[in-house]
Design a protein around this nucleic acid. Structure first.
Lengths: 345, 345
DNA sequence: CTGTTAGCGCTTTCAC
DNA sequence: GTGAAAGCGCTAACAG
């Protein structure tokens, strides 16, 4: 049996029992004006005894602040976004804020808008938003005129009033390109993410500094996309000795497909990714590590700063990334110096 | 520049502009009493025009319901719990509820209690709680007398008034044991999780039906623990041909350690896990799949039911699991029929 | 079909 | 050092 819920004490009741006014109880709790030590102690005793906690709704109604932040990510089960969530939560927690997490992708389409209502109805004071490349980005951008919103992971393109925290994607792409060039590679295929994302263009630009003539194919940030596009590249008349993937999922798919086609990684073809998700270490993938926890934490801090200072200028922060060299990238086979790489069937 | 926040319209203002009373506005929105179609349309026009959304706090203050559920998991970045979160969120969303996610493990210790205040201060209407085996379980159990709480993943031991939704761990252990027995294995080492969890004992009991004499070692649900304990087993005088891990993380650690010691998996020793997290497929691990999304969704549904019907009896649901056979388990080497398995150095 | 009114539980002037 | 009282924005009797 579920026990009957106990009555939650109100401040009024605490006041009555302690023999003081609600005003005093309120001030004992907030410390916003001096209270006689005796009175305070007696009041606190009652509060502790009854396990009293002020009702959040009533407090919010007066103060206009809920002490809650919202976080919208495409999919919480992707470890990349889960880590961002962890970062946001940690930073919010340090500021005594709770976090409401919403996954935009797996909510029934019609419901997506519901999340935005959490902002409109004041449930949350502000929002950390990870752009998904879908129509929601547009709505969020419009809302940003009226509410505190910070973009994380990707910039909210076309909305320059919105602060954002992203990784230094250009530098990441550059690091991968240089790494492969140093290994002797001269011909690369880039399997990039969707064109809607700024990060896609930046990563590609970084790689192009070392591989100006690389073939660039755009797809989704998924294993399927990586497998399909690397297959397309294989079936073309192009020769290449390395594949630069737009993220680790794409890289995983590419490796799977290459091996299925009898291509050895890294002996025949090197493959590198981006993100350094947990799976990257498992399959020994060379990649660029994004500071995911910091990404989330910094976004939350920016949001909190914006909430306490209405006149802050929108900023764009790019956090440094780190090349993680593992076993999926290696030197070009010595025998075939030029042109190197895969031959078509 | 962050634009100045626009004034959020109140119901009062809507009423004034539409030329009706707040009561009517309220009823136009809730539909709880008939309104003249003309009036309704005019009112709705104003509401839409101003983008009005009722203030959540005020609504909550009257109704006593926040429309928010809390979810506390040990660590959101573990894909297992992320999936449970997804399940909870999906089910809550279907009931028009939001979800506040808290990770108990990575909140500064003193703050853990803050999450419980979300319940006490009415921010959330109820809580889905994934036991962590720590002191918080005790506090949560006590709170369950006064608030709606449903345990997920593990039972909240010693608190039989709390409903819980778990996997059928006994059946899972049984399936693993039978699978290995059918492959010809006769000597097993079980590297189980912490003794604090009911699931640990249940999984072990299931395995024991096929391996009554198995050596059972208890540790944490982590790779480190798996690696360390399988190392201990190797250095003992015990012979074994298979390792049953308490979860996939343990199994991953065990495989890593075995390979480091020159033992081939599955040729020399078979290893099986539990959970079927994403990494399991990557390393080709035989395991038991838990219905994680259903686990979360069912817990949320139970919680919602409890919230709308105070007199519900506490239930204990065990969802069915599924054996997933992959490459980490194989037949005992034919040459060494009895005794089989690893010899000590 | 519609409006008036009394709060929900708290914070915060204002007065003592 | 303390209290009375006016709301915050909404819902739901209770009248019309």
């Amino acid at each position: 049996m579920v026990a009957a819920r106990r009555h939650r004490p109100t401040m009024q009741e605490i006041a009555q029992i302690a023999g003081v006014s609600v005003t005093t109880v309120s001030h004992v709790l907030s410390g916003k004006r001096p209270v006689n030590p005796h009175t305070a102690e007696r009041t606190l005793a009652v509060i502790r005894h009854l396990g009293y906690v002020p009702a959040a709704a009533a407090r919010k109604l007066k103060s206009g602040r809920s002490g809650l932040l919202g976080l919208v990510v495409p999919d919480l089960t992707l470890s990349y976004f889960a880590s961002i969530a962890k970062g946001v939560e940690t930073a919010a927690d340090a500021a005594d804020c709770g976090v409401i997490v919403c996954s935009s992708s797996y909510s029934p389409r019609a419901r997506g808008a519901r999340y935005l209502d959490l902002l409109r109805d004041g449930t949350v004071d502000g929002l950390v938003y990870a752009p998904s490349g879908h129509s929601m980005d547009q709505q969020i951008g419009n809302l940003a005129r009226d509410f505190a919103i910070v973009a994380v992971d990707e910039e909210l393109l076309d909305f320059d009033g919105v602060s954002s925290v992203t990784s230094d994607n250009l530098q990441g792409g550059r690091a991968l390109g240089q790494h492969l060039a140093e290994l002797g590679h001269r011909r690369a295929v880039v399997i990039a993410g969707p064109t809607e994302f700024g990060s896609t263009a930046e990563r590609v630009a970084g790689v192009r500094e070392s591989f100006p003539n690389a073939l660039v194919l755009h797809g989704e940030f998924s294993e399927e996309s990586g497998a399909r596009l690397v297959g397309d590249a294989m079936r073309s008349s192009l020769e290449f000795s390395c594949v630069v993937a737009g993220n680790d999922d794409i890289a995983l798919g590419a490796i799977r497909q290459l091996r299925r086609d009898g291509i050895d990684v890294p002996r025949d073809v090197s493959v590198v990714g981006f993100d350094d998700v947990a799976a990257a270490a498992l399959v020994d993938l060379t990649t660029v590590r994004q500071p995911v926890l910091e990404l989330g934490a910094r976004a939350a801090q920016l949001l909190l700063a914006e909430l306490s200072d209405q006149d802050r200028v929108a900023t764009l922060e790019r956090l440094p990334v780190e090349l993680v060299i593992r076993g999926s990238s290696g030197p070009v086979a010595a025998a075939t110096r030029a042109p190197q790489g895969v031959r078509l069937p």
